[in-house]
């Protein structure tokens, strides 16, 4: 498994312009383990603090999100992993009294810089939510919603985008003949894949997934995971999950959050086999949380 991935990495290296050694990752053990790997940093958080009013939800978060990898964020409820996810596309702007400190960059650009428009940022950093939230519209209109609000009017172009997105989300075969039907008539798992397709339709660079399978049955969960692995070829994915097996199965890197801090970050197989911190080990062994 790891070997295959490494070969893949080497193949990609030529295409990468801005590369950096994983040695720059703050947690030293990652550097030791994967010093041969070279990864492109897509998003980076530096000393991020986050407050809901007086309550500090995130403390000094430092993390790298690598290009075309799945980064999983795990930790018990209320540990701040979802809050952190939402700082990446400024979804927290919508919450009154929320305040963020430190720098969060996507492709080197600070997302909180004065010139950055939140709507424009969210076009580049898409999001899939915990509960499938299709619009009360037809399947077609759900997917076409994003391109339309960004100004695409051409019917043919919209049709092509819808087909491509549905194919990418592995939903095309199931819905191609019923695109005019309400999206609410789909099953939960199909709805969630529709939501993923809807995000892909605006061609984001990074896709944030906030427990995308936690409201689904095991079979649908399996399909979503399969889809994530597939999407990794083209997209950078940050995945928040409660499900540790899921993190172990699909992710390349894992960050462990606890009480607003990131306790440990590193390659997933390292985190799940030989974690540095006692708390990480206790959590992944199921001793708490």
């Amino acid at each position: 498994m790891i070997k295959l991935e490494n070969m893949e990495f080497n193949g990609q290296q030529q295409a990468q312009t801005k590369t950096m050694a994983a040695a720059a990752v703050p947690t030293p053990d990652v550097a030791v383990r994967s010093q041969k790997r070279e990864e492109t940093v897509r998003a980076e958080a530096k000393d991020v603090n986050f407050f809901y009013g007086d309550f500090q939800a995130l403390k000094n978060i430092n993390i790298h999100v690598f290009d075309r990898r799945i980064t999983a964020l795990i930790g018990p409820s209320g540990c701040g992993k979802s809050t952190f996810l939402r700082t990446l596309n400024r979804m927290n702007d919508l919450i009154e009294g929320a305040r963020v400190e430190g720098s969060i960059t996507i492709d080197g650009q600070d997302v909180n810089a004065p010139g950055v428009d939140a709507a424009d940022l969210r076009k580049r950093v898409g999001m899939v939510f915990q509960r499938p939230n299709p619009f009360p519209m037809s399947i077609f209109d759900n997917i076409a919603y994003g391109p339309r609000i960004h100004g695409e009017k051409n019917k043919k172009a919209l049709g092509e985008i819808v087909e491509r997105s549905l194919r990418q989300a592995a939903l095309w075969d199931e819905v191609k003949d019923v695109q005019k039907r309400s999206a609410l008539a789909l099953s939960g798992g199909q709805q969630q894949r529709l939501c993923i397709a809807r995000v892909l339709a605006v061609e984001p660079e990074v896709v944030l997934m906030d427990e995308p399978a936690s409201a689904l049955d095991p079979n649908s969960t399996y399909r979503i995971e399969e889809l994530m692995t597939e999407l990794k070829n083209d997209y950078t994915i940050v995945l928040v999950t409660h499900n540790m097996q899921q993190a172990a199965r699909v992710s390349d890197y894992t960050g462990f959050f606890l009480r607003g801090e990131m306790k440990e970050f590193g390659a997933t197989d390292k985190i799940f086999t030989t974690p540095e911190q006692k708390e990480t080990e206790d959590y992944i062994r199921g001793r708490f949380g």
Binding site: A119, R122, G126, M127, N133, C195
Partner: peptide, 21 residues
Amino acid sequence: PSSLREASFGLGATRWQTIRL
């Protein structure tokens, strides 16, 4: 439901687009 607003904002819609659509 706020999930509807979030879905729209999450796709890069402006506030007015979200309200209108």
